[in-house]
Design a protein around this nucleic acid. Structure first.
Lengths: 189, 189
DNA sequence: AATGCTTTTTACCAAATGGTAAATGTTTTC
DNA sequence: GAAAACATTTACCATTTGGTAAAAAGCATT
């Protein structure tokens, strides 16, 4: 809870009443492992802040292969932002990889925060921009480096995560098959 | 010029005085082929809107290979946005691939627009968000698909661009070597 | 048309990765 | 603790891609 407030205050100042207002709108959501927070074909109902656990974003490409394109760890926002904001149908899934605890906000409450707190929209924009830039930065080596380097940079970018998520998801994230990832791990040892 | 105004008006309403103000700050910049608009190691001076020509973003990875990570065609903003906004040293290059014509704004003028026009910052945020989302979307297939599919989706996303830029840049963008790209093009014919 | 310059293709072989299925290891459930 | 279910590794070989250098093609200049 404190982590959530600290996270937000990185991006702008809020007084205690404003923080109170935000927290009053937050709902606690427990998500069991493998449960979906948001699903392709449905409109995302909530934006969430992950207090505990790991989630992933995934979709199915045109060969019906499941592609994991992002991981989100605790103390970060989890949201299909564009689809949530416009309340349109999502084309990807957000799934809990471990049991998760989240603070979530309905679209209505989220909008109310934006309409009530002066300067909130700026903060929100900064948060979104920050997340998008981080995504781009993280995914850069996935294009230009070989698989071993990609794996090493994954380890670097997400310390410890390799022990918390199935390797099949990591292989997909890195753009290689699971046997390839297994071979790479063997060669590194 | 009109293209620039239309582009902006996609993201919010502005009256004619506001538009006049914006245009009064704009400077015309002609950039010869291969010239840099922004350079690694330097602070980006301008944010630009590309009226004519093609540019690319590139950087050097830790093996000193030059990586082209984005192309920008006419009627789009060209900016190392994060570095321009914070006026910090860039880590990548923005280079004209063909002769270019741009509208550019200095940091000072750009800030003045933001401080003068109510609602401009919202528009700016939307533009930035839009560009970042487009970047992510375009680069998605570069991870999860094989090289031939990546090439085809490049052709799809940038119609005609293949005939305007060196294939070596495209190969780099797709994460393959130039001989590989050449082979792929041959197989498709 | 000839010259030099750059870009693109080709050819060669080595290395990396994919596809599949079986084997092993690990966790869960009863 | 045994059985079942799931996750990971291994092994096999086919295919793709990389690295390098030479050849060919395309462009500009004279």
């Amino acid at each position: 809870m404190e982590a959530f407030v600290n996270y937000i205050l990185q991006f702008g100042n809020l007084n205690s009443q404003q923080i109170e207002l935000i927290l009053s709108k937050a709902q606690m959501l427990a998500l069991a492992k493998d449960a979906y927070f948001s699903e392709a074909g449905k409109i995302p109902r909530y934006v969430g802040f992950l207090l505990k656990g790991v989630t992933r974003f995934c979709y199915y490409n045109n060969r019906s292969e499941e592609i994991t394109h992002s991981f989100v760890e605790e103390n970060n926002f989890v949201s299909d932002q564009q689809k949530f904001e416009s309340q349109i149908i999502a084309s990807e899934y957000i799934q809990a990889i471990t049991d998760c605890e989240m603070l979530v906000f309905s679209k209505k409450d989220w909008d109310e925060i934006g309409n009530t707190i002066v300067g909130w929209k700026d903060i929100e924009h900064l948060i979104v921009k920050n997340c998008l830039l981080k995504t781009i930065e993280r995914r850069s080596p996935l294009v230009s480096e070989d698989a071993t380097t990609r794996y090493l940079s994954f380890i670097d970018q997400f310390p410890g995560l390799i022990n918390r998520v199935p390797l099949s998801y990591v292989a997909s994230y890195l753009g290689i098959t699971q046997p390839s990832l297994s071979r790479i791990r063997k060669n590194i040892r």
